[in-house]
Nucleic acid binder design. Sequence first.
DNA 1: GAATAGTGGACTATTTTAGTCCTGTATGAG
DNA 2: CTCATACAGGACTAAAATAGTCCACTATTC
Lengths: 153, 153
Amino acid sequence: MLRMSKLTDYGTLVLAQLAANDRGLSTCASVAAATHLGQPTVSKLLKLLARAGLVVSVRGAQGGYALARPPETITAAEILDALEGPVAITACSSAVGLCGLEGHCRVGAAWQRINRSIRVALESVTLADLLTSPDPLPAEMLERELRKSAATG
Amino acid sequence: MLRMSKLTDYGTLVLAQLAANDRGLSTCASVAAATHLGQPTVSKLLKLLARAGLVVSVRGAQGGYALARPPETITAAEILDALEGPVAITACSSAVGLCGLEGHCRVGAAWQRINRSIRVALESVTLADLLTSPDPLPAEMLERELRKSAATG
DNA sequence: GAATAGTGGACTATTTTAGTCCTGTATGAG
DNA sequence: CTCATACAGGACTAAAATAGTCCACTATTC
């Protein structure tokens, strides 16, 4: 359904946790406890995020992880890239001998346009946005949000 | 990687094929032959597309499928909806007892914004756009297209 | 009434994703 | 200098989603 993986979803929670604790380092274990995710899972996520340069790690006793940059400079696109690889709605349907539209896939160009639109949308939202809702939510809107969340799961 | 399923990809090829043959009905078998996809797969796709109202079906001998509407009025969003269910990048990461950010998922609102952006992007591209590349193809490319189309029928 | 062609659903196989575990390495404290 | 802490990397298993196939049934035409 064109949705991101659970891991990516978890990843934003993990990043949010690091952002909340920006005074110092957070250990894998403490993040796991705070997010109620499994420690091995959090570990895996932090390793991926570290490799992507979104978080920095300090090894050894008293070590841990922290955001590499302020939340305002980390985009949703970067998070997706780090945890799911490059965002691309389709890698072009034309595998050799498969594409019915012979050799050059006529369908490709428009999908690329859609890709770019999605990319722009993802780049325009930062981790900071993900943390603090951008529109100041009036109480009733918040309420509606809650109800909706409850409805969808 | 935030990509649509293969089936959806195939679905656009199938729709493209129907659009190409808009003078009459196409059988499941002929579409399969033209797209080089398996006949059962094409059958499945056409059934789904028919149920979603994007194509119409005629049963019995001399039956087949055709687009229900002109390609200009069928959006990428509708195709995705038909083949993958409602497009939603995330169903909100806050499962009960899972979301570390206190009951109401602070992360949700911005994802919803991204969702809407993606939706708009998908609604702004039609099947017609998917067929005819928006950038005018250089003459030789067009020529190649024609030759290959003629060759395969 | 025989052949064609869509309908619906069940089923299997494959692939992807999620989650776990183990071994290794860097750092700091005692 | 040794031990405990905590990240690094990768292999592995389990679970779920996806892709693909098959069958019995219904409608239509010749």
